[in-house]
């Protein structure tokens, strides 16, 4: 029912693409990260909570329609519904059913609860399209609460030592997850402009964040004493960071599981926190779908597909897409939002 073509994942019967990477007439968007929600489509369909994020990132004049989770619509005989993916607020798996055959496009997803997104719900299907960003057995993420505690402890120690704390996470999703779990009793919380813009949208949707302030260019250095600054990856190594000196730099990412990645980014601290599945979550999620056919996209796709074939008896194939997964280079961020 679905196929991968030059534009993206296509459902011919319904005449609609899912997360296309080139402009098309009709697109269903799993979530608002820029490698999945691209510019130039004539029509967008996404979850209600994703709609304002699409408008913020792609412009207010786009033609977009929102629907809720578990609500089915029909296009030319194809039943289409959205189900929580647990990746970021508004993120959805797309379920398509036609003549008894069921496909699920999961976009990006995770099974861990992050406190701000509706948790992942497994959907039974015949064909499942999955990412494989952390599809190696070396990726086993610690319990989230342990990581939040480590972050707050690090902040408290920094403040005691007279240095500020700069923490790095994606502007959409990761930054708010951090902001939701910070202990605002320790000090003031400041955020980069790119983070602030997203915060405003998500707070309107009822997501609770610890009190934060936007960093402005003419600010007094003293404001940052003992403070926590939340910034996107593109801020690493930029002159924007200089105003927070002296500071300790922490990076939140699943890649921080490996010492090599930590050292290469010259982070003072790496916090293992990801909005993607680790090895255990991936295997658990795929087992829960009951799918006989699995298509493995962005990540360690050939290795993970081989594992599914040889050790799980699943008919798995790797698929080339333009999705990026979790990048440490900050290419998902709009730096001009400074």
């Amino acid at each position: 029912m679905l196929r991968f073509d030059n534009n993206g994942i296509y459902c011919r019967q319904a005449g609609i693409y899912i997360d296309p990477w080139r402009p098309v007439d009709k697109a269903i968007i799993t979530h608002a990260h820029s490698d999945h929600a691209r510019w130039g489509n004539k029509y967008y369909l996404a979850h209600h909570d994703t709609v304002p994020l699409l408008r913020l990132r792609l412009g207010f004049d786009i033609n977009v329609e929102g629907i809720g989770y578990n609500h089915s619509i029909e296009i030319n005989g194809v039943q289409i519904s959205l189900h929580p993916a647990g990746h970021i607020p508004g993120s959805a798996q797309i379920r398509l059913e036609y003549k008894g055959e069921i496909w699920v496009v999961s976009g990006d997803y995770k099974l861990q609860h992050d406190g701000i997104s509706v948790p992942f719900e497994p959907v039974r299907c015949h064909h499942f399209i999955t990412e494989s960003t952390f599809g190696l057995p070396v990726y086993n993420f610690p319990p989230p609460q342990q990581v939040y505690d480590e972050i707050n402890e690090w902040w408290r120690n920094n403040a005691d030592l007279g240095q500020n704390s700069v923490i790095i996470g994606y502007a959409l999703g990761k930054a708010q997850r951090i902001l939701h779990h910070l202990d605002s009793g320790i000090g003031a919380i400041w955020v980069h402009g790119a983070v602030a813009n997203i915060n405003t949208v998500l707070e309107e949707q009822g997501i609770e964040l610890q009190p934060w302030q936007r960093v402005s260019p003419d600010q007094n250095k003293k404001d940052f004493n003992g403070a926590m600054i939340v910034a996107p990856p593109s801020a690493i190594g930029s002159s924007w960071l200089k105003r927070f000196e002296p500071f300790s730099l922490g990076i939140c990412s699943g890649w921080m599981q490996l010492r090599g990645a930590r050292r290469r980014r010259s982070a003072d601290r790496g916090f293992i926190m990801s909005d993607h599945c680790d090895w255990t979550q991936l295997n658990e999620a795929i087992a829960a779908t009951g799918a006989e056919h699995v298509y493995v996209t962005h990540g360690y796709k050939s290795v993970y597909a081989k594992w599914l074939r040889e050790n799980k008896g699943i008919n798995a194939t790797e698929v080339e897409t333009l999705y990026e997964g979790e990048s440490l280079e900050g290419n998902k961020e709009e730096i001009e939002e400074l």
């Binding site: 190696l136 057995p137 070396v138 490996l258 090599g260 360690y300 290795v303 081989k306 040889e310 050790n311």
Partner: peptide, 12 residues
């Protein structure tokens, strides 16, 4: 499986 361990080693 051994091959998967070796793939992981290459990455780490």
């Amino acid at each position: 499986p051994m091959w998967l361990f070796d793939e992981s080693y290459l990455v780490v």
